[in-house]
Amino acid sequence: MKWDDLTVFEKSLLLGTLLGDGTIARTKAKQIPKRGLQYREHFSVKQMEYREWKLKVAPRIFSGIKVRSTGTSAELYSERDELFTWLWEQCYIDRKKHIPVHLLKDCTHPVFLLALYLDDGSLSLTKSTRSKLNQVIITPHIYLYLQAFYPEELENLSEFIARTFNHHFVLSRRSDGHFFTLRIQKTEEAIRFLNDFSPYAYAVPSMRKKLDWEYRLGLECENHPDMTVISSKAKHDYTEEEIEFIIQAKQQGITDADIAKELDRSYWSVVYKWQDIKKNHLKEEATIYVY
């Protein structure tokens, strides 16, 4: 099988999941087997339903699933094929995975971004309270944990995603890998991302917490039965200029009250935003993620 023999859906799913949890197995032997190389994807059995969905929708690519003897992990695999030999040459340099930017143009089905998100992404929730109003405000953040790739590769990927799927990711600092991952910064864009992919929650119910924003809000309501749970509104989002102003102001020792006055925002809004900046802009590893 050759790359050009695949449908747009198959190409999109294969490359999306290859950049995520998938890998192309290569033996230490210098010679490549005549039958070609093999795709493999290790995962926890808790995510079995998602991998069974991949197997179901792309049977020409994936061949089966093996459960390990421990019973806690499994592997989605393909048959050996020249396709994976070719993809190994496109995606690996010195046995390290890279983003084949030249292949992205062939992956225009949304399943490409879905696979990236379900394989290597997370939905992170920031929570704040308004005691006087008895409210809990929930703010979603979408991350793609792709810090194994270089920043310039992530820039190319984010530009492709914005151009093709109209979802806007920015680089966000991490303490591991090559120190950057991708993040949707604005609240309304994070919610739009989830709304666009929520139909897949019906195909993979076990991923509903990660895909269906209304369902996720419902779970938060159950967790806070004595309070009103609301989603943060777009008008509360800070611009890049405001974020930069807060960083510079804090470095100069300006108080939160004075920053709030300058930005015409509430004191507590600035306090919460500074915590978010420290976690997600200056020290990414402090964020708590919901998988």
Rank of each mutant, 00 (worst) to 15 (best):
F149P: 06
E152I: 07
F180D: 13
L146F: 13
L219A: 03
T164I: 04
Q251N: 15
T129R: 15
N195V: 03
H178C: 01
E220P: 00
E153Q: 15
R183F: 12
P205M: 01
K132Y: 10
R174V: 03
D237G: 01
L171F: 03
E152C: 08
Y215F: 15
Q185R: 15
L211T: 00
R208A: 07
L219D: 05
I184E: 00
Q252S: 13
D212A: 03
D226G: 02
Q248K: 15
R192I: 00
L154N: 08
I138S: 11
D119A: 03
S206P: 02
S122M: 03
S158V: 03
F160H: 13
G121Y: 11
Y145T: 01
I259C: 01
E222M: 13
A201H: 10
S122Q: 06
L144A: 08
G177R: 08
I142C: 00
E152L: 12
V136Q: 06
F245H: 09
G218D: 08
K127E: 13
S122D: 11
F193Y: 04
E155A: 02
I259W: 04
V229Q: 07
R173I: 03
I161V: 14
V170R: 12
I259L: 02
T187I: 05
Q248V: 12
T126W: 07
I137P: 07
W213D: 00
H167P: 00
A190Q: 09
L157T: 07
L194S: 13
T139K: 09
T164V: 05
M227I: 02
L157D: 04
S131R: 15
R173F: 01
G121W: 10
D212C: 04
R216E: 15
F169T: 11
A257C: 00
F245V: 01
H141W: 11
F160K: 08
E244C: 00
K132L: 14
I247E: 09
Y143V: 04
F169M: 11
F169H: 11
R173D: 00
N156T: 08
E222F: 10
T181D: 14
Y143L: 07
F149V: 02
T239I: 09
R216A: 15
T239E: 05
L211Q: 03
S198Y: 08
E189W: 08
C221E: 13
D176W: 12
Y143I: 01
L211K: 01
S128L: 06
Q147P: 00
K127Q: 14
W213E: 00
G121R: 11
S231E: 11
A162I: 02
N156S: 11
E244A: 07
